[in-house]
């Protein structure tokens, strides 16, 4: 008669068992494939040894694992934190968000004489760098990248406008415009 093995606690049961009687997890087919898969995934440190307990007459038994029951296993599953969690290693914090906002605004304002883009780019880099010290995530990286791009565009734009104003000053056109304003 075939057997099924619980992938969580290793409890063996007959082939008709859909769920483990020990921990309630869904049973897998016996034959060792599922068990070896879980071993290879590193979920269990040991193999099959010492503490197997066979129930009298039932033909079932339990193979020893790192965890003795489903509750111990689930208690040790790493908590998967959402991107919105603040203060965690992966959650965005206020400085990272400010850095991203500054970077986006720096790119958008690069053609406005270039100076706002330079200011916003520098502010964005500072905010993103400070924010990235406490957590690493896409928002922090994106903020840093956008701020750097905005700063570069701002510097190029500033040089362009400085050269244009310089030419206008040489030709006297600058003073004419100021008189008209």
């Amino acid at each position: 008669m075939g057997k099924k093995i619980c992938p969580i606690c290793g409890f063996q049961d007959n082939e008709n068992a859909a769920y483990c009687r020990e921990c309630g997890a869904k049973m897998t087919e016996s034959g060792g494939d599922a068990w070896s898969d879980y071993e290879q995934k590193g979920q269990y440190s040991g193999g099959q040894d010492n503490t197997s307990q066979a129930s009298a007459g039932s033909g079932t038994g339990r193979q020893s694992t790192q965890y003795n029951n489903y509750q111990d296993y689930t208690a040790n599953i790493p908590y998967r934190q959402s991107a919105d969690d603040f203060g965690s290693n992966n959650g965005a914090n206020g400085l990272q968000i400010a850095g991203l906002v500054c970077g986006i605004l720096a790119i958008c304002s690069c053609c406005c004489y270039g100076v706002p883009a330079v200011i916003l780019g520098i502010a964005g880099i500072i905010c993103a760098a400070m924010g990235n010290k406490t957590s690493k995530n896409g928002i922090g990286t994106g903020g840093l990248v956008c701020s750097i791009i905005g700063l570069i565009l701002g510097v190029i734009s500033t040089i362009y406008y400085a050269m244009a104003i310089g030419q206008m000053l040489q030709t006297g056109y600058f003073n004419e415009i100021l008189d008209m304003m």
């Binding site: 790119i107 958008c108 690069c110 004489y113 362009y160 104003i165 206008m168 415009i177």
Partner: peptide
């Protein structure tokens, strides 16, 4: 405000298209 003349958008002059921030002011 009265010391800096208004100049056309750098992005428009160089690339011939509106920049992402055009119209913001």
């Amino acid at each position: 405000q009265n010391r800096i003349p208004r100049m056309p958008c750098f992005f428009d002059e160089v690339f011939g298209i509106y920049c992402p921030g055009c119209g913001g002011t």
